[in-house]
């Protein structure tokens, strides 16, 4: 390496500079495709007449019809939905309270540690430990309540993270100013913080719902009477052949793809600049002190 080589764009680099955008699009499309392969395969398998995971050799809608008459599956579905709704309501409420209190507490690292670390805990370890503690050492029955506890402890950190993130846009000074002008803490929250963190609350609710709806390991250990959809699926593929479960999964995939497509259309046809202006005006009207600091 004695010779100093002057910089010359390599073949790859010059190719990238000419076709960079296309290369990126192709790459990301492949990435999305890869992640989407399993859900798409589920849709394909759900039409296979034999209900076996193989290259489809016959087409049928039978499993979709049978899905709705499978009371076990429907019960599991209703239970999962009920559990998910309760998880959403409770986790988002608790997470919001902690996020509101978090800014004012002195022990930030402690609060963060307690709230966030459960994310990094494999589900089966938590489910196993909690179920052993409850049944062997405390003599508590596993019921719907223990499942709910498991689900909340899984969804809570995510809800908290999302709400906290959205709250970083709230200016502490604005709230102080509002209270200065005679607003009680509730009004200050409602009029100043709530509009800003509302998207965060919505994302937190969506997150919690999805996390709860698909929770398997914790439910598996903490289950009372009656399975949820994931544990139902597990029990089914263990001892029985049930192509209806593929139909249910396929339906979820198609529904969510459809919703995303609708959302994309909506975003395409809705102008967004006007809204941006009105938001800025609103903040300006409030005389936000930190406005100038906000990077744009």
């Amino acid at each position: 390496m004695s010779e100093v080589v002057p910089y010359r764009p390599g073949a790859l680099e010059s190719f990238l500079s000419r076709h960079g955008r296309k290369v990126w699009v192709v790459f990301v499309a492949l990435g999305a495709l890869y992640v989407l392969v399993p859900p798409i395969l589920l849709v394909i398998v759900s039409f296979e007449s034999s209900g076996v995971v193989r290259i489809p050799q016959g087409f049928t809608l039978r499993w979709y019809a049978e899905m709705f008459t499978d009371i076990g599956l429907m019960n599991a579905l209703f239970k999962s939905i009920g559990l998910a709704i309760l998880t959403v309501v409770i986790s988002v409420f608790l997470a919001l309270q902690v996020a509101l209190g978090y800014r004012k507490t002195k022990h930030k690292t402690l609060v963060i540690a307690i709230m966030i670390l459960p994310i990094f805990l494999p589900g089966m370890i938590q489910g196993f430990s909690l179920s052993i503690l409850l049944t062997q050492f405390l003599g508590v029955q596993r019921t719907f309540l223990t499942e709910l506890i498991g689900h909340i402890s899984w969804a809570l950190p995510f809800a908290f993270l999302v709400i906290l993130t959205s709250m970083s846009a709230v200016q502490r000074e604005t709230v102080m100013a509002a209270m200065d002008l005679g607003a009680n803490p509730w009004r200050a929250f409602r009029d100043i913080e709530y509009p800003i963190i509302k998207p965060g609350l919505i994302s937190a609710a969506i997150f919690s719902f999805v996390l709860s709806f698909n929770e398997f390991s914790r439910t598996f250990y903490l289950q009372g009477i009656g399975p949820t959809v994931p544990t139902f699926v597990f029990n089914k593929i263990t001892v029985d052949i049930t192509p209806e479960i593929f139909a249910l999964s396929a339906l979820t995939v198609v529904l969510s793809l459809g919703l995303i497509a609708l959302g994309t259309l909506y975003l395409t046809f809705v102008g967004r600049t006007a809204k941006k202006v009105s938001e800025a005006e609103m903040l300006a009207d409030m005389g936000t002190p930190g406005q100038a600091e906000k990077p744009t």
């Binding site: 859900p39 999805v210 698909n214 994931p230 699926v233 593929i237 593929f246």
Partner: peptide, 10 residues
Amino acid sequence: IPFLTSYLLR
């Protein structure tokens, strides 16, 4: 989207 489907089946 994968988060919405059963992990086992996926």
